[in-house]
Amino acid sequence: MNAYFRLNVEILFWLIIGPFQRQGPKVAEVFRQIVRIGVEGLPMSAMTALTVGLTLAMQASRKLTELGAGMYVPDMVSVSMMRELGPLMTSIIIIGRSGSAVTAELGTMRVSEEIEALRVMAIKPVKFLVVPRFIAMMIMGPLLTVFSNYFGLVGGWIVWKLIQGKGTAIYITRSLESATAGDLYSGLFKSAVFAWLVVTISCHVGLNVKGGAEGVGRATTRSVVLALVAVFISNATLTYLFF
């Protein structure tokens, strides 16, 4: 736990102090990570969000119509996507796709002495390996969440328009009117917190792998589990704080 906090401090140090010492992160490497973490993760999170939007709309329209409130389906979809499901689903996808990859990658580097070699060359592993991944994750976490929100709304619209045959214009106005900017921002804030937790946990576990290929495997599992737990707990906490 102590080492985990030290990692966080060190990341912030390089992020804030680094550029002043002409030791800022390498833009090319940050972009490479952005592509790996974000761009390549887009199809997966889009698909997840689309299906979540679809199911949400179907479930909601049945219950809401029973209550005579069928008109509120767009409100329901957009608010729950923005506040809750968008950030949560996206971070689960990120944990599975990118967090595990980061742990496995850093863990392999650790067991094959690459990390030690970096330190001996007076290159800080945190600055060189962790900070670019951190920046990429902090940018792409919220960005992917925005995309997820959008695809969730598309999912809801598919049900609204194609299954129930209702108008597109009204879907758009209703979903935009009901969701406030606050809903979007609280969701984005959540997604930033999740991104932070995921990337720091997966880097921390990866950098501290012990014991060969088997150790890397175990660490990857551990990092996924820890990140999921951290995201769920912080999600509940943040939701409590926002309401």
Partner: peptide, 11 residues
């Protein structure tokens, strides 16, 4: 330092 395994960065 030349490590026994080489320790080159694979990426």
């Amino acid at each position: 330092m030349l490590f026994q395994s080489g320790a080159l960065l694979q990426s």
